[in-house]
Amino acid sequence: MVSAIEIKNLSYSYLDGIKKVLAVNNISLNIETNSSVALMGINGAGKTTLIKCILDFLSPQKGEISIFGKKSVDSTSRTELSYLPEKVNLTPELKLFEHFRFLGKLYKISNAETNERMKKLSALTKLENLYETRVGKFSKGQSQRAGIALSLFNEPKLLILDEPMTGLDPLGQKLIIDILNELKNKMTLFVSTHSFEFARKLADKIIIIHKGAAASELTNKKDIQDIENNFYKAVNIE
């Protein structure tokens, strides 16, 4: 079976003034199809940089990334994936239904099918009454829910989430956990998170990143249940 994400010897560095910072240091990962993987690490460990490399927002100096067997630099590799960033920034001038139409056109989906998906996803994320509202007027929670609805629009096989719970109230967090639990095993989930509880509930595999390198990979249930100790051990904090 083709891996959802395959990363080989990936390195990415950037210049901070005259100092070269190695943000991702020779990482190799294999994310299997329909698995749920949590990416953990302290702030500045390289989680978001790694995700940006996967999405081709950054060009790594070394290494290769494949998404369902296609090179990440090929834009068609993103047909079957969706990305939900830490802070969802949708086009504020567009109404919610226009966002769905926009995606419908990009994915070449008919208007009738777009409307059907819009209704289903709006019901799932409790946004049914906001079709005609401009996204710029949404609250943070509503924006995050709209982000989830739109990220599921193309029925992705791979969903990449970067700290999806940040800044959400308990209700918003519960909604995200419920949706992700619903999606688990139906698609590949690759989630960057700081929450041990969230990782424990969701992940079949936890990757701990430290100083740009994969410090540890937890795959068995016992290790995942004991994530706190394993995490502190991996990042050398007592």
């Binding site: 999405l55 081709d56 927002f57 834009s75 068609t76 590799s77 993103r78 047909t79 994936l81 969706s82 990305y83 960033p85 802070k87 969802v88 920034n89 949708l90 086009t91 995606l103 990009l106 994915y107 982000g147 739109l150 193309n154």
Partner: peptide, 17 residues
């Protein structure tokens, strides 16, 4: 700056398009 670009470029759109 608004990071709206992530929403668009994470779709199957090339930088040229």
């Amino acid at each position: 700056q608004s990071k709206e670009i992530y929403y668009i470029l994470s779709r199957p759109i090339s930088k040229f398009q």
